[in-house]
């Protein structure tokens, strides 16, 4: 769910850009460090950004029949870590604004905050929490990917509610309205993306176990099984 160009008041647009900037800067620093140590990672991150972009152009089978597309937030966060995803997500969101008119330049900061910061950090937190609780790998991935989507969508709803509080009920009523309107597409999308990410991770474990082990994504016993 991208906030469209010009939708946010100028103070909110600037505020969210300022809030996102440190995460993008830290992400860029970590990417620079990675590239200095492993130069081949530069190509990997660039191709990963393209991969995230093309994922957003895929139509996913949705239970409501609505047109939904995977965001790749959960998968990307599990594979590359949440810090690197802020600049990668920023590039993808800028491309979506420029190539597809989804989102916008003035709302780029707000969209980066919800999709490239909150979503990935939520995904990794849930994945690590579930792993620490010794949940099986599949349900951990499902929860991480689904909740990352839900957190992204709730953050966007909160951003809209902050910008446009309800005259009678204030922020909470506005949050309920925005969350309610977009829940029709976003909740089924979160569930479908959760299942999809599990299928993807299972396929990766079968065919790309060595790469996953090198990235410390999966416990060894899962790969061995």
């Amino acid at each position: 769910m991208h906030i469209m160009e010009g939708f946010l008041p100028v103070s909110h647009a600037i505020g969210w850009s300022i809030a996102s900037a440190p995460f993008v800067a830290v992400g860029l620093r970590s990417i620079n460090k990675k590239i200095a140590e492993h130069p081949e990672q530069r190509m990997l991150l660039g191709v990963a950004a393209a991969f995230t972009f093309v994922l957003s152009a895929l139509k996913m089978p949705s239970v409501t029949g609505s047109s939904s597309h995977p965001t790749g937030t959960g998968l990307g966060a599990i594979l590359f870590g949440p810090t690197a995803l802020a600049p990668i997500g920023g590039v993808v969101l800028l491309f979506q604004a420029l190539l597809l008119a989804h989102g916008g330049i003035t709302t780029l900061g707000a969209n980066i905050f919800s999709m490239a910061i909150v979503g990935p950090f939520a995904a990794v937190a849930v994945f690590r929490g579930a792993t620490a609780l010794r949940l099986p790998f599949g349900p951990s991935v499902f929860l991480a990917a689904s909740l990352a989507d839900v957190m992204t969508y709730l953050t966007t709803a909160a951003q809209l509610a902050l910008a446009f509080p309800d005259p009678a009920g204030g922020f909470l009523a506005s949050l309920a309205k925005f969350a309610g309107v977009f829940a029709i597409t976003q909740i089924p999308l979160a569930i479908c993306e959760g299942f999809l990410t599990v299928v993807v991770m299972n396929a990766l474990i079968r065919f790309n176990a060595r790469e996953l082990r090198e990235m410390n994504v999966t416990p060894r016993e899962v790969i061995r099984a």
Partner: peptide, 8 residues
């Protein structure tokens, strides 16, 4: 990142 993303 943008150049690689665009070209890929």
């Amino acid at each position: 990142l943008m150049t690689l993303c665009y070209r890929t």
